[in-house]
Design a protein around this nucleic acid. Structure first.
Length: 290
DNA sequence: CTCCCGAAGT
DNA sequence: ACTTCCGGAG
């Protein structure tokens, strides 16, 4: 059932879409998959440079799979959540071993790959293969919740979004990109730009006076002082060092020895760091995928 | 300090 | 259903 929301947003998108390099003609499924993983938790502006480096260095899954995981972690730079880099490396290996080196174009096969969840699998199918799938990230949830239900945070499921997409494959893929773009640049969480919104006239949320949620949703933890920050500091040292790093150099980045050790152990457990000996550490140099 | 906002493990 | 996992911009 093509909806007013999907149709109007698609028209708007064709005039107002940002010119992002992974949207260019001829960009392959692997490059799009990389972009979606990088964008999972990181703003566009920070992804641009690293994505370009990755696709030039590793234009196919086989190119990435042929290198040690540590190279992916190093090239991830400061994008954050570096387990994504490790999973992308594992993902490349799986694509080579199980799919002949080509990104699969079926939902169940994508969902089975490491680091690929409900959102990313459908984003790749839509944006790389032009298929019709509900691509639901928090932007899309917010847009649909506001426009159709008039509230900030109604639970929006895949089925509901599937129903509002146009029936044609390429029209649906376009609408999915458009809904995400609208949520990102117009129907923003904090500062919505309703004055330029293509669906303002039929937005339930706007009609109701842009009601805020009953519960303001408190964010329990800040980043400063968390294990995540310490892990980031430790990994940065290893990333920027060509040679293995002795423990005493890691001791410099954080004063609390208990937390520092806990962070180091969790990095080892995640496979983001390897111990060369009991007091020397390096990025993983696991043998490339066979 | 706040905002950003997906995958996977439990 | 709830928690862990980053880091830069404002």
């Amino acid at each position: 059932m093509p909806s007013f929301l999907a149709e109007q947003t698609s028209i708007w998108y064709q005039k107002n879409a940002r010119d992002l390099p992974w949207r260019h003609e001829g960009v392959g499924a692997w490059a799009i998959l990389i972009s979606e993983v990088m964008l999972q938790q990181t703003p566009v502006s920070r992804v641009l440079t690293v994505w370009q480096e990755w696709i030039e260095r590793w234009p196919s899954p086989a190119d990435l799979a042929a290198e040690p995981a540590g190279e992916a972690i190093r090239a991830w730079g400061r994008l954050g959540y570096p387990r994504r880099a490790m999973r992308l490396h594992e993902c490349a290996g799986e694509i080579v071993r199980r799919h002949g080196g080509e990104v699969p174009d079926e939902l169940d096969k994508l969902l089975a790959l490491p680091g690929i969840g409900d959102y990313t699998a459908r984003a790749v199918l839509s944006f790389a293969f032009g298929q019709r799938h509900p691509v639901v990230d928090t932007n899309v949830r917010r847009v649909v919740s506001r426009v159709h239900h008039g509230v900030e945070d109604r639970a929006i499921g895949l089925a509901e979004v599937a129903e509002l997409l146009p029936l044609g494959q390429s029209d649906a893929a376009l609408a999915s990109a458009a809904l995400m773009e609208l949520g990102a640049v117009v129907c923003a969480a904090r500062s919505p730009r309703c004055g330029v919104c293509p669906v303002m006239a039929e937005c339930r949320w706007k009609q109701l006076g842009s009601p805020q949620p009953e519960k303001p949703f408190r964010r329990p933890q800040s980043y400063a002082g968390t294990d995540r920050q310490v892990r980031g500091l430790l990994l940065a040292v290893l990333r920027e060092s060509a040679a293995p790093v002795p423990r005493h150099r890691l001791d410099l980045v954080w004063p609390d020895g208990v937390q520092r050790e806990r962070a180091l152990q969790s990095l080892l457990a995640d496979g983001l760091v390897q111990a060369q000996s009991c007091d020397v550490f390096l990025l993983p140099d696991s043998t490339p995928a066979q």
